[in-house]
Nucleic acid binder design. Structure first.
Length: 617
RNA sequence: GGGGCGGUAGCUCAAUUGGUUAGAGUACCGGACUGUCGAUCCGGUGGUUGCGGGUUCGAGUCCCGUCCGCCUCGCCA
C-alpha cells in the first residue's frame, strides 16, 4: 500500500516539487476523459489530485481513475505542483495539486445512500443514524468530534492541575429506586436479582470522599430510562466532581474556574464573574429555575392588583389556596408579562396561539391587553377584558410601567401552574418578538449565571408528600442548618422555606451543571429521611452502604456534575443532542445502526433467569 | 402514557378538487470531452407512494389500524 506521507489538509505552496503520497476518500470527481480531477478527503481537509494521461500515467491507472466514484478509498503518489488551472480559494490546499503517477484503489464503495456533504441538504436523520459512519465523515461532524475531544482534554488537564483524582466507578450498580427509571441488568448467579445502570455516580463519589480521595473527577456515562428530548438522551455523559473539606463557596469557585478555562480554550471567550440569582427570584421574574437573561422580559405577580378587578377568571384563580402562604404551589396567583413593543409584532393570530400554548402546561388561557394610542393621544387599552380593566386603567399602567405599543399577557392559576406557564410563555414571546440573540457559537452572547438557594423540599403534586428537590443527600445551606434541625416536621411553612446548599450553572437559559453540599452529619441525614417519609429501616435498606460509610468518619464534602453533551452543544451551536454524540439513540432508545435493542435467544434468557412476557413479534 | 408533524425513485422534493402512463434535480449506468473545482454535454436504468385494511367507477391524495422518525406535555436534575 502507498502509505501516506501527508494528510489531505496539509500541503501548501511551500511543498511544491515534493513527491508525496496521500490516502483518503474520493470527495468528488471531475472527469474530462484524458484528464481527471479528484478531490481527495480525509478528516484534515481536501486536496485536488490530477490524473493526466500525458503526464506519464499508465493506461491501467487511467482506466482505474476513470472508474473512481464518490467515497471510494484510494492511495496515490505524485508530485506537488502549483495548480495549472488557477487557485481554488475555497480550499486551504487550493494553491496546489498532486499530479498522480501511481494509483492504488484501496476500497471500492457501493453506491452510498447519501454523500457526506455539508453543502447539500441533509438527508433524514433516520438515514444519517442508520449509516452513521457516512454521516460522521462530514466535515461538520468531524469538527464536532474534535470539539468534544478538546472538551475532554481541557477537562482532564484542568482538574489534574487542581489536584483532582480521576476514579472510575461501576457501571453495574445497585438499584436505588429514587428519581429516574433505571435500566436493569439481570444477574446470572442470583436468580431474580438485578444490577441497575447508574443514573449518576452520586453515592460512589460521596463514598470516595469518605475514602479520603479528597478531590475526585470522572467523565462518566449516566443512564436514565426516561423519554428523551432534543437536548436529552437516555445515555449521556457527565463531568462528575466531588471535593472534601469545602463549603459551597469553594466548590462554586472551582466550578467557575473550570468554566472560565473551558470557554477560554474551546471558544476563545473570557467568562466574566458569574452573577448569582436565588431560586425564588428566578421563579418570580422568569417563571423558570434556569432563566434566559439574554433578553429583558420579566414576569410579575400582580395578584394584589388583579384582586381588585371584577373579573371572574382572576377572582376564581385567586380564591384557590387563599389561606396558603406566599409562593405555596397551590396558592392562586395572577402573573403578568409586559412585552415592550408587543402591540405591533404580536398579532391577534400569534396571541390566539398563546392560549393553546399555555394549555399544554395546564393553564386555562392567556388574557391579552394591548396598550395603544387613543384618539385623545392618551394610552388606550385594546383588550377583551376592557370591561374589567378599564376602571383601573391608571393604576394598571403605572403598576407595570406600560407605554403605548406594549402588550401585556396574563395567566391566572395556582402558583406552580401559572408560574410555569408564564415562564414558558416568556420564552415563546421572546422568540416571536425576535429578542433571542444568536447562540454563543454563532457570535452571540454567553450568558452565565448561578442559581442558588433552592428549596430543600417540594410537595409531590400527586401524593402531597415531601420530596427532595435535588436529592436526599443535599445539605441545608449553612445559615439554615440550625433552623432545619429545630424545625417541627409538621410545620409546612418552615419546611418549605428551608433552603439547600445547592447550586446550578445556567447558560443562555440552559442548565449546564448542578450540584450541592452533601450532608455528612447523621442527625441531619436522619431528619431528611424522616421528612421524606422514610423510616430508619427503609433508609437503611436503600442506602445502607452510604449510611455506613458516613458513620465511619465522613469529611464535609460537596460536588457537582456538568452535562458534557450540553457543553459541546453550546460550543458547536446545535440544539440537537444527537449531533454531539457519535452513536446516539432515537426517541425510543433504538440504535438504528446496530439495531439495538434486539431479541436474544431463549437460552441466553434462561441463563439469567428471565422469561419474556412480550407477545411474539 | 397523551398531543402534533412527517414517511413518494438510492437521496432531496413535486404531483390542482380523489382522475388518464406518479414527475424534476441529484446520485447511479453508458457515451463524449485535457484545466476542472457542486465540471459540462448527450442518452439510459430506477417506484410495493412505510405496512395492512376500508370507502370509491377510480386513492400518493379520504377513513381506520399499525410501524418508524422528529417535536412536545407528562416523566427526567
Amino acid at each position: 500500500m502507498l502509505i501516506r506521507t501527508h494528510t489531505c489538509g496539509q500541503l501548501r505552496e511551500s511543498d511544491v516539487g515534493k513527491s508525496v503520497r496521500l490516502n483518503g476518500w474520493v470527495n468528488s470527481y471531475r472527469d474530462h476523459g484524458n484528464l481527471i480531477f479528484i478531490d481527495l478527503r480525509d478528516r484534515y481537509g481536501l486536496t485536488q489530485v490530477v490524473f493526466d494521461k500525458e503526464s506519464g500515467l499508465s493506461a491501467g491507472a487511467m482506466d482505474a481513475a476513470d472508474k473512481l466514484r464518490n467515497e471510494d478509498v484510494i492511495a496515490c503518489e505524485g508530485m506537488v505542483r502549483v495548480r495549472v488551472g488557477g487557485e481554488n480559494p475555497k480550499l486551504a490546499t487550493g494553491k496546489i495539486e498532486i499530479v498522480v503517477d501511481k494509483l492504488e484503489v484501496l476500497a471500492k464503495t457501493d453506491n452510498p445512500p447519501f454523500l457526506p456533504d455539508d453543502l447539500s441538504k441533509l438527508p433524514n436523520e433516520e438515514l444519517r443514524l442508520t449509516h452513521r459512519y457516512i454521516d460522521l465523515r462530514r466535515p461538520s461532524m468531524q469538527r464536532i468530534l474534535s470539539t468534544r475531544h478538546k472538551v475532554y482534554q481541557t477537562t482532564r488537564r484542568y482538574f489534574d492541575e487542581n489536584g483532582f483524582l480521576e476514579v472510575e466507578t461501576p457501571i453495574l450498580y445497585k438499584s436505588t429506586p429514587e428519581g429516574a427509571r433505571e435500566f436493569l441488568v439481570p444477574n446470572r448467579h442470583v436468580p431474580g436479582s438485578f444490577y441497575a445502570l447508574p443514573q449518576s455516580p452520586q453515592l460512589f463519589k460521596q463514598i470516595l470522599m469518605v475514602a479520603g480521595c479528597d478531590r475526585y473527577m470522572q467523565i462518566c456515562r449516566c443512564f436514565r430510562d426516561e423519554d428523551p428530548r432534543a437536548d436529552r438522551q437516555a445515555e449521556f455523559t457527565q463531568i462528575d466532581l466531588e471535593m472534601s473539606f469545602v463549603r459551597r463557596e469553594q466548590v462554586m469557585e472551582a466550578m467557575e474556574g473550570f468554566v472560565r478555562r473551558l470557554w477560554k480554550e474551546i471558544a476563545g471567550h473570557d467568562v466574566p464573574p458569574m452573577r448569582r440569582m436565588s431560586y425564588r427570584e428566578a421563579m418570580e421574574d422568569y417563571g423558570i429555575d434556569r432563566p434566559d437573561t439574554r433578553y429583558d422580559l420579566k414576569t410579575r405577580d400582580i395578584s394584589a392588583f388583579a384582586g381588585k378587578m371584577d373579573f371572574a377568571i382572576f377572582k376564581n384563580a385567586l380564591e384557590k389556596g387563599k389561606d396558603r402562604p406566599a409562593f405555596n404551589s397551590r396558592k392562586g396567583v395572577v402573573k403578568a408579562l409586559r412585552v415592550p413593543g408587543g402591540a405591533e409584532k404580536l398579532t391577534r393570530k400569534i396571541t390566539d396561539g398563546y392560549t393553546e400554548f399555555v394549555k399544554t402546561f395546564g393553564a386555562g388561557g392567556v388574557a391579552v391587553v394591548k396598550v395603544v394610542k387613543g384618539e385623545d393621544g392618551q394610552p388606550r387599552l385594546d383588550t377583551g377584558i376592557a370591561k374589567f380593566l378599564e376602571p383601573l386603567k391608571g393604576e394598571f399602567l403605572a403598576l407595570l410601567g406600560c407605554e403605548v405599543g406594549d402588550t401585556v399577557l396574563f395567566v391566572a392559576d395556582v402558583y406552580s401552574v401559572a408560574t410555569k406557564a408564564i415562564g414558558e410563555l416568556r420564552q415563546r414571546v421572546a422568540r416571536d418578538m425576535g429578542m433571542v440573540p444568536r447562540s454563543g457559537a454563532e457570535g452571540g452572547p454567553w450568558n452565565f449565571l448561578w442559581v442558588v438557594d433552592f428549596p430543600m423540599f417540594e410537595r409531590n403534586k400527586d401524593t402531597g408528600k415531601w420530596v427532595a428537590m435535588h436529592h436526599p443527600f443535599t445539605s441545608p445551606n449553612d445559615d439554615q442548618m440550625q433552623a432545619f434541625l429545630d424545625a417541627n416536621e409538621e410545620d409546612e411553612v418552615t419546611i418549605e422555606g428551608i433552603v439547600s446548599a445547592g447550586y446550578d450553572v445556567v447558560l443562555n437559559g440552559q442548565e449546564i451543571a448542578g450540584g450541592s453540599v452533601r450532608i455528612h452529619d447523621r442527625a441531619v441525614q436522619s431528619k431528611v429521611f424522616k421528612l421524606l417519609g422514610m423510616t430508619p429501616d427503609q433508609a437503611k435498606e436503600k442506602f445502607s452502604f452510604l449510611l455506613e460509610a458516613l458513620a465511619y468518619g465522613a469529611p464535609p464534602h460537596a460536588g457537582v456534575a456538568f452535562g458534557l453533551d450540553r457543553l459541546v452543544m453550546n460550543f458547536v451551536g446545535t440544539d440537537n443532542i444527537r449531533d454531539v454524540i457519535a452513536f446516539p439513540k432515537t426517541q425510543t432508545g433504538a440504535d438504528l445502526m446496530t439495531r439495538a435493542p434486539s431479541p436474544v435467544p431463549e437460552g441466553q434468557l434462561r441463563d439469567v433467569h428471565i422469561k419474556s412476557i412480550a407477545p411474539p413479534a
